[in-house]
């Protein structure tokens, strides 16, 4: 509870909406892009390099009047695997959702292989995920090559993925 009070001091509270917690600071702006938050008309506040027991430092995003589908939640699994989506109604957390790594990922990441068809023609990327010690790696559905967490590049999308309240 102490941590929650602490957060409220640093990033102002919202009445209804979603708080995305435990984002690695270096992934903050990628999360914003992947979820299309740069396109939303809703009020957003975020903080970064906040203290975190789990991550050392973390970022947090509060989006007023917006709620996310499981599919959207899992879209950020590659870059923020520990993230938590807290659903807020009337200043109270009514639901906590943990990011889950999907078995298949479409269109979010780029294939690391420069000779892959997806890097040359208008083909949506598609991967199966593989959980390894060093994090998540992706096996390209097309060229069968491995893209590991280190070489991961996120395809930015300008379309909004938030579901309006």
């Amino acid at each position: 509870m102490n941590m929650d009070t602490d957060k409220k001091l640093k990033v102002s509270a919202i009445k209804d909406g979603t708080v995305i917690d435990r984002i690695p600071p270096q992934s903050l702006f990628k999360v914003i892009e992947i979820l299309g938050l740069d396109q939303t008309g809703h009020q957003i506040t975020f903080g970064t390099n906040l203290e975190s027991k789990h991550l050392g430092k973390k970022a947090i995003i509060k989006i007023a009047d917006s709620f996310f589908e499981d599919e959207d939640v899992n879209r950020i699994a590659l870059i923020a695997p520990d993230a938590k989506f807290n659903v807020i109604r009337n200043y109270e957390v009514v639901e906590k959702r943990q990011v889950e790594i999907p078995d298949q990922i479409r269109g979010i990441a780029r294939c690391v292989n420069p000779k892959c068809i997806t890097n040359h023609q208008n083909v949506e990327t598609r991967f199966t995920t593989k959980k390894e010690r060093g994090g998540i790696s992706l096996v390209c559905h097309y060229c069968e090559k491995l893209t590991n967490a280190k070489s991961l590049q996120i395809i930015t999308k300008s379309s909004a993925y938030t579901t309006d309240f």
């Binding site: 294939c111 292989n113 000779k115 892959c116 068809i117 997806t118 040359h120 023609q121 083909v123 390209c140 559905h141 097309y142 060229c143 069968e144 090559k145």
Partner: peptide
């Protein structure tokens, strides 16, 4: 010549 072209 491109990897993955046949799958596509």
């Amino acid at each position: 010549p491109l990897d993955g072209s046949a799958r596509y």
